[in-house]
């Protein structure tokens, strides 16, 4: 049995230095009681986040009753769980409720046209998001590009993005997930998932990645949608910025930023409290990810 430790907690939460207790949790589906693999776990106040492994196990050292933070657990197709740490004392299971997926019920546009949205020349991409800098720490779970679809009912057929990698470099091996969102009608942020299937991609060292999405039948209900990269915050996927230290862990892949300015910021990031925020790091200069989407409509 594998237990994943929040070892960094040792250095961040007061009163833990002399801890002797380890609190072990299994994150499971509320109905089936089966583990949820690679659930995203974060502590917003401590600025810590990671993914569980396939067995859904999580270990937190220390006396939970003395901790002030909240534990946010999210997984695709499940309602997020937000629990004060001090309320978890004595528990060994955290259950997530599956939310019912309702496919988009609108006529599919069928003019026979293809459009590439946010098209770019990959050689022009020189900026990347995904690592800490002297100006800001990069503490996000997902990064998304907003698109304007040519018509409601378009089908997403392919995405292409640029990342920081050098061919032949073993260390750029990565595994990540793709998420697709409708727009939240109230806040204008990424909203409901447009695809209930878990789309996980692996790659060794390609700086430009193309993912064919034909088989997932992703229909965009309105004229705005989002494509997001979800980092799998596992040890296999980790790197360091700027130097080797637990608090400097970052996760692959880095995502390119287009060196062009449009009239609207189209990049969104999901923080550890599971809130979508505009990504303003390169504002007011750069507004889009190096991520294009092909739609059939």
């Amino acid at each position: 049995m594998k237990y994943l430790y929040f070892i960094i907690l040792l250095f961040n939460i007061p009163g833990l230095k002399a801890q002797t207790v380890t609190n072990n949790f299994r994150i499971v589906d509320a109905d089936t009681k089966r583990p949820i693999p690679y659930a995203s776990v974060s502590l917003p106040r401590a600025s810590l986040a990671m993914n569980t492994e396939a067995d859904g196990l999580l270990s937190i050292p220390g006396d939970l009753s003395k901790m002030n933070d909240v534990l946010v657990i999210t997984a695709q197709n499940y309602t997020p769980s937000v629990s004060p740490l001090n309320k978890l004392s004595g528990m060994d299971t955290i259950q997530l409720k599956k939310y019912p997926y309702r496919p988009v019920n609108i006529p599919v546009s069928s003019t026979g046209k293809d459009s590439v949205l946010n098209k770019f020349t990959w050689q022009d991409v020189t900026y990347f998001a995904g690592v800490h800098s002297q100006h800001a720490r990069f503490e996000y779970l997902q990064i998304a590009q907003q698109f304007d679809s040519p018509a409601p009912g378009a089908k997403l057929s392919q995405i292409f993005f640029r990342r920081f990698a050098t061919w032949g470099t073993y260390t750029e091996r990565t595994r990540f997930r793709l998420r697709f969102y409708d727009i939240d009608p109230v806040y204008g942020t990424p909203g409901k998932d447009l695809c209930h299937e878990i789309i996980e991609e692996t790659n060794k060292d390609d700086p430009r990645l193309t993912v064919n999405l034909q088989k997932y039948n992703i229909i965009i209900p309105g004229k705005k949608f989002f494509v997001a990269i979800e980092w799998l915050r596992t040890f296999e996927n980790a790197g360091y910025a700027p130097n080797r230290a637990e608090r400097n862990l970052v996760y692959k892949p880095t995502i390119g930023i287009l060196p062009y300015k449009t009239d609207k910021l189209n990049i969104w990031v999901l923080n550890y409290a599971h809130q979508w925020k505009p990504f303003t790091y390169f504002s007011p200069y750069y507004t889009d990810l190096a991520l294009s989407a092909t739609v059939k409509w």
């Binding site: 049995m1 594998k2 237990y3 994943l4 430790y5 070892i7 270990s59 690592v131 800098s133 002297q134 920081f164 470099t169 073993y170 260390t171 750029e172 091996r173 040890f235 296999e236 980790a238 790197g239 360091y240 910025a241 700027p242 130097n243 080797r244 970052v250 692959k252 880095t254």
Partner: peptide
């Protein structure tokens, strides 16, 4: 990258170090 588990500490793999 080193990983600490219930079994102890394991060496996993090389990892990139990024800097600006």
């Amino acid at each position: 990258v080193w990983k600490t588990t219930a079994k102890g500490t394991q060496r996993l793999q090389d990892a990139p170090t990024y800097r600006m």
